[in-house]
Design a protein around this nucleic acid. Structure first.
Length: 258
DNA sequence: ATGGTGGTCTTACCA
């Protein structure tokens, strides 16, 4: 059994104890983090290596930042991709236990047609091309992270209120669908799920208490991993913690040896 | 109820 998780922690410095507690509780094998918000020199390496994990990370000051924490060795690490000269640290890929893992912190996009939105769409285009290329080389591949896209209306607490907005706009959903067209599957939808399950809730206006959320954090799997995927869940409990991230962790159990 | 909270080498910005 291999447990693979993704979590936007919104500052690893603030959330380190929560992350360590959650890893202990769930006995996770591989954890992909987004929004670590720390430069590499300040990454809390020892906290993870003391627990028997290995890690890789790509950070910057104040914003963004991605990391992969793994019980197994991390090979073939990539932080930058062709045709995207981007100082923002949002991409981290590594091969672990025969699985190619691509960890993404997709840009938020701010508002439809804003400069940040256009950056998001271009970023998604270049990353899609990179993933298409990776799929040619790796049979067992997972794309995980904060996609900042709610793929379907059932992933949105109030689809009418959100219609056309950033995170749900048709061009963003088309970019997500393009990944599925490569044969990747949204692991969450492989299983029967209760309605109104989300992975992110705005800190403001009692968003979590009222379950006014979106499902924007995803684990996409190639068919070979779908075939051994036993479950796909969102751990809403982590969002109930004191001083939580605005995102909950999402994770899959794969019936392969770690 | 068109606001609100939380994070950052903050006093503006990002989400």
């Amino acid at each position: 059994m291999l447990k693979l998780a993704s979590w936007n922690v919104n500052s690893l410095k603030i959330r380190l104890e929560q992350v360590l507690d959650w890893m202990d509780k769930t006995n996770i094998d591989i954890l992909a983090l987004q929004e670590t918000k720390t430069i590499d020199d300040n990454f809390p390496v020892a906290a993870f290596t003391e627990r028997g994990y290995q890690l890789c990370f790509a950070g910057q000051k104040t914003f963004n930042g991605v990391a992969i924490i793994s019980r197994q060795p991390l090979a073939n690490i990539i932080t930058d991709i062709p045709d995207l000269d981007d100082p923002q640290r949002r991409i981290l890929a590594s091969t672990i236990a025969g699985v190619r893992l691509i960890n993404l912190y997709v840009p938020n996009g701010s508002e439809v047609n804003s400069e940040k939105y256009l950056y998001k769409l271009n970023w998604l285009e270049k990353v899609s091309a990179f993933i298409a290329n990776e799929l040619r080389e790796h049979e067992h591949l997972a794309v995980v992270g904060d996609f900042n896209i709610a793929p379907e209306d059932c992933d949105v607490h109030d689809p009418a209120a959100w219609e056309g907005s950033v995170l749900v706009s048709p061009p963003e959903r088309e970019a997500f669908a393009r990944l599925l067209s490569y044969g990747l599957k949204d692991s969450f939808r492989l299983f029967p799920q209760e309605a109104r399950q989300f992975s992110w809730w705005d800190y403001r206006a009692l968003g979590f208490r009222r379950n006014r959320g979106l499902r924007i954090d995803h684990v996409l799997l190639t068919q070979s991993l779908v075939d051994c995927c036993l479950s796909s869940k969102i751990d809403k409990d982590a969002r109930r913690a004191e001083r939580p991230s605005d995102h909950a962790p999402v994770w899959v159990e794969l019936d392969i040896l770690p």
